[in-house]
Design a protein around this nucleic acid. Sequence first.
DNA 1: TAGACGTAGA
DNA 2: TCTACGTCTA
Lengths: 162, 162
Amino acid sequence: NMCVNTEYIIGEVPGIRVGDSFDYKAEMSVVGLHFALMSGVDYLKTRRGRMLATSIVASEGTDYNNVFMGDQLLYCGIGKDQTSLEKGNRALMCSMKQNSPVRVTRGYDLGNGKTSFVYQGLYVVETYWVEERAAGKRVFRFKLRRKVLGGGESSREASLQI
Amino acid sequence: NMCVNTEYIIGEVPGIRVGDSFDYKAEMSVVGLHFALMSGVDYLKTRRGRMLATSIVASEGTDYNNVFMGDQLLYCGIGKDQTSLEKGNRALMCSMKQNSPVRVTRGYDLGNGKTSFVYQGLYVVETYWVEERAAGKRVFRFKLRRKVLGGGESSREASLQI
DNA sequence: TAGACGTAGA
DNA sequence: TCTACGTCTA
């Protein structure tokens, strides 16, 4: 890949601050904020074989229906067939159970096909449920809440979770 | 777009030499060698409304069956429905009629999903035909030949064609 | 709005 | 091999 920083990490990425914006997913990949060029969820596997989400991108448009409200984010799950918790969706569930922070980047639709991605900071998955949609489609919905800053949780503690 | 050089031009791109290689289509786009990130054919419309191909990328793999043999290239047409000459295919046909040079870049499959793109120089479309494939699929096939270097055709003459 | 010789990762 | 919250042009 074209990444400089190639390490999947939980929590803040050194050098990246809340409010930092990017024009392309590829830029986010290069700096290690979000590696996947297309997928909306990055995740890793711990030594114990546990999956943990590292980063999500919540974009506008299509029928994702991601909702930012205050310090909350209602994030639509990933994938065509969301009948079972797999991949990114499973990782988000595991992050919830572990109270593991997830980086959130918001994708703004600037019109004329342009997008701007703005890093929102660390969020924690509080709960999730299943939504029934038209044509019998099911999607997972995750509720995340912005992590309180200065909560005394050091990056060392975060790394110990792994 | 993320391009620095944003001008579609016929012929050589200043600063790009035969043999120059690129890891990503995005790099080729930035330098103005080939703008399209996905499509294999770049083209422009002249003031007279004539289409002319500026650049093609001939990749290995899938069922493109592009064949480099000596100074010749057998290039598979573009698109799902190749029953009529449209877009890039039409542009290549027009380039043939106008004897207008087309930049050719070869895409090497390095395995493990990696690709290397190497600029091959200017080619001229000599002829094209239709190939029948399985399942009644039709594809256009273009025969290009490497342009003889030092042929005395100046870039000014090339621009006059437009 | 849809199509296109892309990329990385599971 | 396939999927994936991309990105550009027509």
